[in-house]
Amino acid sequence: MSTEIAHLRRRLVEFTIQCTTHLELPPIVKYSALSLFFDRFRPSVVRFLQKKKKAEHWLLQPLTESNLQLFVLVSIWISCKMHCSRGLSVQSLKSLGDKMITEQLFTVRDFMEAVMKFEIGTLNIAYTLLDDLFIHFKEVAKVGELLNFEACMDMMDLLYEKEETSVLYHSSTSLAASILVS
């Protein structure tokens, strides 16, 4: 992976973490959003661009960091819808985008198009699996009392920042188990 792509990835991970922190969202939303964007959406865009086809939608033509930040916000919005009893409104998402994305302003319609035109799906999210494993391990093993869930989340953050989640692990279950063991 080129250093430019690695640097962009790091900035997008940081952007995701900053946005979820700013919104005071629970960790499940952060990790779901990271999974949606980096494990589902971004790889499909990369494959599309490798085919050297012209993007069909203006949000991908040209593909800029601010456009990718829009899709990060959409991933946060979807994650919040899945995991929070009180989801984010599109207007609050747009307000956050206005504060956090400095190169370009997006309209509410842009956010809605990003949601409707691009399928960002999720099945198993490593955070959920890690949480389940953590709880089970604490129940069945005495050494489970020594586990620190915050340390597990810190490891997951580092793996996302370094892109090790998609390079080393093709399964969310193995990623969660590896983090817990570490």
Rank of each mutant, 00 (worst) to 15 (best):
L133C: 10
L12F: 06
R11Q: 14
V74R: 02
R11K: 15
S44F: 07
S92P: 00
E139T: 11
K53R: 15
L130R: 02
A151I: 09
E163A: 09
V46R: 13
N67P: 13
G97A: 04
G97V: 02
S35G: 10
M82A: 08
N124K: 01
K142G: 07
L146E: 13
D157E: 01
K51G: 11
C84N: 09
L68N: 03
L133R: 02
S182M: 10
A141L: 14
L59E: 01
I5Y: 11
K117A: 08
E14D: 12
S32C: 12
I135A: 14
N67R: 09
S92G: 07
G97D: 05
E56Y: 07
Y169N: 03
L59Q: 04
L130E: 08
E65L: 09
V45K: 04
F118W: 10
L12G: 04
T107K: 00
S44Q: 15
L159G: 01
P26G: 02
L88V: 02
S92E: 15
F38M: 01
V13L: 04
A6F: 13
T128R: 04
M112T: 15
A55N: 08
Q50D: 15
H83R: 01
F41Y: 12
V74D: 02
F106E: 03
K142E: 11
V108Y: 10
S89E: 05
R9F: 05
F37N: 00
F38Y: 10
V108K: 10
S44E: 15
L73M: 08
D98Y: 03
M82P: 06
E4W: 06
S172H: 07
I120V: 14
I101T: 02
M100C: 11
V181F: 06
K51I: 12
F106P: 07
A177S: 11
A33M: 00
R42V: 09
L96M: 11
I5V: 11
A151Y: 09
K99F: 08
E56Q: 14
L49S: 15
A114T: 09
V108I: 13
E24T: 13
I78Y: 08
L59H: 09
H170F: 14
A177D: 04
T102M: 10
M156I: 02
A114K: 04
I5N: 12
T107D: 04
L96H: 01
D131F: 12
V72T: 05
K99W: 01
C19H: 00
N148L: 06
T122I: 11
P62T: 06
L146W: 03
Q61A: 11
Q50F: 10
I125E: 03
L96S: 03
F118Q: 00
T173I: 05
L70F: 01
V167K: 01
A151H: 07
F118T: 01
I179S: 07
S172G: 13
P43G: 12
L159M: 10
S85C: 05
